[in-house]
Amino acid sequence: MVCFAAGCSTMDPVEHADTLAQAGGLQRERIVTPTFVLTAYSKISSPREPIHLYIEGDGLAWISRTQPSLDPTPHQATGLQLAAIDPAPNVVYLARPCQFTPMAVNPTCGIPYWTGKRYAPEVVASMNDAISQIAARAQGQQIELIGYSGGGALAVLVAAGRTDIGSIRTVAGNLDDAYVNQLHNVSEMPESENPIDFAKRVASIPQIHFSGADDHVVPSAVAERFVDETGPRCAQTRVVPGMTHDGDWRAVWPDLLRVAPACGR
Rank of each mutant, 00 (worst) to 15 (best):
M1V: 15
V2G: 05
V2S: 09
G7I: 08
S9M: 13
D12H: 11
E15V: 09
L20Y: 07
L20Q: 13
A21R: 02
A23T: 13
A23H: 15
G25E: 01
R30E: 09
V37D: 10
I44C: 04
S46G: 05
S46W: 11
R48I: 06
E49A: 12
P50C: 05
Y54Q: 01
G57E: 07
I63F: 08
P68V: 02
L70R: 15
D71V: 09
T73E: 10
A77P: 09
A77L: 03
T78F: 03
G79S: 13
A84K: 02
I85H: 05
D86P: 04
P87I: 11
N90K: 11
V91I: 10
V92A: 02
P97A: 01
P97W: 09
T101C: 04
T101D: 11
V105H: 10
P107S: 09
T108F: 12
C109P: 07
I111G: 03
W114V: 00
G116P: 02
K117F: 06
Y119P: 00
A120H: 01
M127K: 01
M127W: 03
N128Q: 15
D129V: 14
D129C: 10
Q133N: 07
A135Y: 02
A136K: 10
R137F: 10
Q139R: 11
Q139T: 03
Q139V: 14
Q141H: 10
Q142E: 14
I143S: 04
I143R: 00
L145Q: 03
L145C: 03
L145I: 06
G147A: 09
L154M: 13
A155F: 04
V158N: 00
A159Y: 02
A160V: 00
D164E: 06
D164L: 02
D164G: 05
I165T: 00
G166T: 01
G166N: 04
S167R: 08
T170D: 05
V171L: 09
N174D: 12
N174R: 03
A178L: 12
V180L: 08
N181Y: 02
N181W: 10
N181H: 14
Q182S: 14
P190I: 08
P190D: 04
E193I: 08
F198H: 13
R201I: 00
A203C: 12
I205T: 08
Q207M: 15
Q207D: 14
A213P: 08
A213T: 06
H216A: 07
V217D: 12
S220E: 15
R233M: 09
A235T: 10
A235C: 07
Q236K: 14
R238M: 14
V239Q: 07
V240P: 01
P241L: 08
P241D: 13
T244H: 12
T244C: 00
G247Q: 12
G247W: 05
D248H: 09
D248N: 15
W249Q: 08
R250H: 11
V252N: 03
D255V: 12
L256H: 12
L256N: 06
A260S: 15
G264Y: 09
